[in-house]
């Protein structure tokens, strides 16, 4: 099924969880912020969400330094 991640179309298997998508993208779930269909998620929610066709996801990946 098709979803949109950071303004780009992406194909994922049905019943993929958000956590699985994060792993697939090579991201560390402790260093990101996610807006899932306009909702900002807490990290505890990442593993509880199963992706649906048409989902719109924005992921910000933070790198160290300041």
């Amino acid at each position: 099924m098709e979803i949109t991640v950071n303004n780009q179309q992406r194909t994922v298997d049905t019943s993929t969880t958000l956590s699985a998508l994060i792993d697939e993208m090579g991201l560390d779930d402790k260093r990101i912020a996610i807006e899932y269909n306009r909702d900002i998620l807490s990290r505890e929610q990442f593993s509880t969400i199963t992706l649906q066709a048409g989902d719109t996801i924005e992921i910000v990946n933070f790198v160290g330094g300041g």
């Binding site: 560390d28 402790k30 260093r31 990101i32 912020a33 900002i40 998620l41 807490s42 990290r43 910000v60 933070f62 790198v63 160290g64 330094g65 300041g66």
Partner: peptide, 18 residues
């Protein structure tokens, strides 16, 4: 947000925006 560590940057982003 003016932290150094990426985990803290992610923490405050989730916390603040929610």
């Amino acid at each position: 947000e003016a932290f150094d560590c990426p985990e803290a940057k992610a923490m405050i982003s989730q916390c603040w925006l929610r």
